[in-house]
Design a protein around this nucleic acid. Structure first.
Length: 422
RNA sequence: GGUGAGGUGGCUGAGUGGUCGAAAGCAGAGCUUUGCUAAAGCUCCGUAGUCCAAAAGGCUACCGAGGGUUCGAAUCCCUCCCUCACCGCCA
């Protein structure tokens, strides 16, 4: 949520930044400002009347305690009721509308972010590793099916399309990856491990920005007001919702493994093949809650922690910056990490690392007490460290051997209990 | 799911219709005094919104959430949520 004061004071700057995301957002700024004006006018008038009425009530109290007649004053006070009620309704309506509008305006992109329509305009920041020479490389579906690592058909039978069931050594590899990632981030990178609920309420989804605008992307639970989490970012960041943290506790760094559930409505094509896009996938997520002056460096550091996963596994990758048109709703700035998948002949996003500034913190009332005693909104940062299914794809496709087996990176072997899949 | 007891400021905890934004204590900030590392005294100290060009200051809201009664609600009534205890069920 953007600060309404910032909108009042520098509407043109905000509009110019929002324009980098695409057209149409400037009108929302004007609308919210008009609502704000209306709300304040009603509120002020109501407050004057309420002040008057409180004064009358006090006088009534004084008269009554002296057993004197107060009926004239009571009648006067009662008479104010109608106008006050109307004003109250109007200002409550304006307040709700204002909040609704504010919740629907995305974050302003960081000043360094280029405008651009879509992913085609995302600059590549750096590349690591050399894509291996693999003539006739198979894709992960062929490799996995041959080795019996997962079963898509039976998963479709029990759940529908967009689900996978890992089987045998395939399931063990998934579990090995989770342990490897959590150990790496908690032991080497200083994150605290969390195992949060996978179902969360509406307030939590609103705090990180999924609601009210993106309910259609979520799985809800019939007969309740709970939703399946689309990422661990949601429960973990909201862990401290409506809290005022002591400054010496910052930064807070959390790592959490959870499955993630997404409707992914309307997507189809090459990018959805096999394990690449599913309604349920595993992910280890990194979350940092920090002070405003540390969030820019925090994003770099969290991104480096995610990159280290690929470096340790020897998987070639590149880091891109998201342009205005491709930037997520709540994000101020985002780096995507894409791993090379030889069978797929393309780059796969395995991590999306974002600095949200105070946008999420403002929505969820997450603050810290500064040195001067003032409460200041925290900055939140998160990124995948990393998504499991696509990492799995990259491991199969990069590690494939001519004999059909898959060689595993050395660091993964003790977790898996063998050097290769065969 | 049932029964009972509760939800008050950073924390503990008073407060059953008016002068209560809320006693007291703790924690925190400042000042004074005495001094061997601590103590005593005094003062200040919630959050948000709004008015004013701004500061100073004023006003309004907030005692789990929402609604109601009343001239007036932390206090009375209704609904819901949460916590605790016991019972039931259960991995």
């Amino acid at each position: 949520m953007l600060d309404i004061r910032r909108l009042r004071e520098t509407p043109e700057t905000v509009k110019a930044l929002l324009a980098r995301r695409g057209p149409g957002l400037e009108a929302m700024v004007d609308e919210v400002l008009a609502t704000d004006l209306e709300r304040r006018a009603n509120e002020t008038r109501w407050q004057h009347l309420q002040s008057e009425r409180k004064q009358l009530s006090k006088e009534i109290g004084a008269l009554r305690s002296k057993k004197e007649d107060s009926t004239a004053l009571e009648a006067a006070a009662k008479k104010m009721g109608a106008e006050m009620e109307a004003l109250q309704l109007a200002s409550t309506a304006a307040e709700e509308k204002q909040r609704e509008l504010l919740l629907s305006i995305p974050n302003t992109p960081h000043d360094a972010i280029p405008a651009g329509q879509d992913a085609g305009a995302n600059p590549v920041l750096r590349t690591w590793g050399e894509p291996p020479e693999l003539p006739g490389a198979r894709d992960h579906m062929a490799i996995g099916t041959r080795l019996g690592l997962f079963d898509a058909e039976r998963a479709a039978k029990i759940s529908g399309s967009g689900f996978i069931c890992y089987t045998g050594q395939g399931a063990r590899l998934e579990r090995a990856l989770i342990s490897f990632l959590l150990d790496l981030h908690t032991r080497d990178h200083g994150y605290t491990e969390m195992s949060p609920p996978f179902l969360v309420n509406r307030a939590t989804m609103t705090g990180t920005g999924q609601l009210p605008k993106f309910e259609a992307d979520l799985f809800g639970v019939a007969g309740s007001d709970l939703f399946l989490i689309p990422t661990a970012e949601v429960p973990v960041t909201n862990f401290h919702r409506e809290e005022i943290l002591p400054v010496e506790k910052l930064p807070l760094k959390y790592a959490a493994y959870t499955p993630c559930f997404r409707r992914e409505a309307g997507s189809a094509g090459r990018e959805t093949r096999g394990l690449i896009r599913m309604h349920q996938f595993d992910k280890v997520e990194l979350v940092t809650i920090t002070m405003p002056e540390h969030s820019a460096a925090g994003l770099e550091s969290l991104t480096a922690d995610a990159e280290r996963v690929l470096q340790l596994l020897g998987l070639p990758y590149r880091v891109i910056e998201l342009c205005g048109g491709d930037l997520g709703f709540s994000a101020l700035r985002t780096y995507d990490i894409e791993v090379w998948a030889p069978g797929h002949q393309g780059w796969l996003e395995v991590s999306s690392c974002s600095n949200f500034g105070d946008y999420q913190a403002r929505r969820m009332g997450l603050r810290f007490r500064g040195a001067d005693g003032k409460n200041i909104f925290c900055h939140t940062i998160n990124g995948s460290g990393t998504a499991l299914a696509r990492l799995y794809v990259a491991l199969l496709e990069n590690g494939q051997q001519p004999d059909g087996s898959v060689h595993l990176p050395e660091l993964l072997q003790p977790y898996f209990g063998a050097a290769k899949l065969s």
